[in-house]
Design a protein around this nucleic acid. Structure first.
Length: 492
RNA sequence: GGUACUAUGGCCGAGUGGCUAGGCAGAGGUCUGCAAAACCUCCUACAGCGGUUCGAAUCCGCUUGGUACCUCCA
């Protein structure tokens, strides 16, 4: 916990020293999914980004309360849909109860997160379970004079708020510009100004998800749930608020306005935003037909994919880029990531087999003394996972040299080396080693038998047999390697 | 049009005012019955145009791409 973490704050557009409000406690809120469709690539990036931050803070010994919500209150698809929301629409199309839809896709989301080895958050509140808190917050905002009621709906008065506060300080927007660019929606609107946003919306007759409030039977505005739930579980002023860069405006901007209006304080100290994902250089969107569900990656069943990619490959690929940069998905890039990951995992298995010696070579000694520090430095610099991964790759060279007995290492140094490697690779980056069957006794016995038969064949120069064994095993995803110490095998 | 992010070698991707990130792919070599793996060596880029500087890919300005948001869409 003595680490000096620099964290990029969207609010200041600079890296700042991370100083929790109440150490060792850290409160972190991240906007979760709206559960009306299968989880896709767009869900993976923020989940993995904040999983990395969560894991690192935990590793350093912070007591982190990580809150990530589930949006199961439908919000309007667009004006033309006459008040029908996404979840309700799905429910109508599939003839299901809206909550059935929400639960189904919540489960799907959880399954995907588990595959990606994303740790569950400390609290995962649902918007539908916090209607009371949201109504209370609307009361507070009305009481503070920053909201008005129109025909059963309640709107946030952005113009008034902006007179005493700065609406746009997070996204860099200026209210006059917003006005100039949004006036085309004037007319039948209940809003006093086009940039006002709903806190509570009166439900149209066909709107299924509805709750009773003093103003009308209706549903909460979509910025409100995050403000209400973060305040409930993390307090009115907490450490980190995260989410995708696409949420910067209007969602997060409005969260600040609501919280300041209701609680008289900015909701959080650090705003952290992950950048977006593109596919083959194009934006990902349903209309462009390049919208890839996570399941499609795992099975390879999508026109844009030439093969299946494991969840760990996806995770590793995302971590190979810094979270604030855009990330482009392509088959070529994913295949590179797949091989790179395999190389690291192989190196780890090799490291576990290294036998200690009387002394550590000078070159290796130098490396080991700086290795741990360099890994921490990478993470401390705004969670720079690409640099961390580069450091791990630097270490593989030494691992392989140790394996070939070209270098030696003492037991304490080996212990240090292994601990650092494991901590950063598995605990912090959250990579898992999927080859579990490798260790079962039966498999091990069978493989020893097969390999001894193959060695016999090789000694008899019966290469037809030895090659056949290797080829057939390859079909079962088992790779044979002939090393100086004899044959070895691994499960791909 | 506005706001913001971004532009790096064949590909993916870090970083920095002068001291070659890393991975993948490619070339050569060692090893090997062959293969795979591993190791060694090679491939040295920073959108364009100006400016600041002893020196910029790194700072400043302009131009041109790309992306997101600006719609009661996480």
């Amino acid at each position: 916990m003595t680490q000096n973490i620099q964290i990029y704050n969207t609010l200041s557009r600079t890296k700042q020293k991370f100083e929790p409000l109440n150490p060792p406690f850290v409160g972190m809120y991240v906007c979760g999914p709206t559960v009306y469709g299968d989880p896709h690539l767009g869900h993976a990036r923020p989940a993995i980004t904040f999983d990395l931050i969560f894991r690192y803070l935990l590793h350093l010994g912070y007591k982190v309360r990580y809150v990530r919500n589930i949006t199961d209150v439908g919000h309007l698809e667009n004006d033309a849909d006459q008040g029908e929301d996404k979840i309700a629409k799905k429910a109508r199309l599939q003839q299901l109860e809206p909550m059935e839809v929400a639960q189904y896709y919540t489960n799907r989301y959880h399954e995907a997160m588990r595959s990606l080895n994303v740790l569950p958050p400390s609290i995962e509140p649902k918007a539908s379970g916090h209607i009371i808190e949201q109504i209370e917050m609307v009361h507070k905002i009305i009481h503070a004079g920053f909201a008005y009621i129109a025909n059963g709906s309640v709107y946030f008065d952005v113009k008034k708020y902006n007179q005493s506060h700065q609406y746009g300080k997070l996204s860099g927007r200026i209210l006059d510009d917003l006005y100039a660019n949004t006036r085309q929606l004037d007319g039948q609107n209940e809003k006093q100004n086009p940039y006002d946003f709903a806190l509570w919306k009166k439900a149209a007759p066909e709107h299924i998800m509805r709750w009773k409030a003093p103003w009308s039977i209706g549903f909460p505005g979509w910025h409100l749930e995050c403000s209400a739930m973060s305040a409930k579980y993390l307090g009115t002023h907490f450490d980190i608020h995260g989410g995708g860069m696409d949420l910067l405006f209007p969602h997060h901007e409005s969260e600040i306005a609501q919280s300041v209006a209701a609680n008289h304080i900015d909701p959080c100290k650090y705003w952290v935003h992950n950048n977006m994902i593109t596919i083959n250089g194009q934006k990902m969107g349903k209309s462009l037909n390049n919208f890839i569900n996570l399941d499609a990656f795992f099975t390879g069943k999508h026109p844009l994919l030439t093969q299946a990619y494991s969840a760990m490959t996806i995770r590793f690929f995302i971590l190979q880029a810094h979270y604030r940069g855009t990330l482009d998905f392509s088959n070529e890039a994913l295949q590179a990531a797949e091989k790179a990951l395999k190389r690291l995992l192989t190196a780890h298995n090799t490291l576990l087999k290294v036998a200690p010696a009387q002394q550590t070579d000078a070159e290796l000694q130098t490396f080991i003394t700086t290795f741990t520090t360099k890994c921490y430095d990478a993470m401390n610099d705004d969670f720079n996972s690409p640099i961390l991964i580069a450091n791990l790759f630097d270490s593989t060279r030494y691992i392989n040299l140790l394996n070939e007995n070209k270098l030696t290492i003492t037991q304490p140094d080996l212990q240090r080396f292994t601990t650092t490697f494991k901590n950063f690779m598995f605990q912090i980056l959250g990579i898992t080693n999927q080859t579990t069957t490798e260790d079962t006794q039966t498999t091990q016995g069978l493989m020893n038998l097969i390999l001894s038969i193959r060695q016999q064949a090789k000694q008899n120069k019966d290469f037809a047999t030895s090659d056949k064994i290797r080829l057939e095993l390859q079909k079962l995803s088992i790779t044979i390697k002939d090393t100086k110490e004899g044959p070895s095998w691994s499960l791909d």
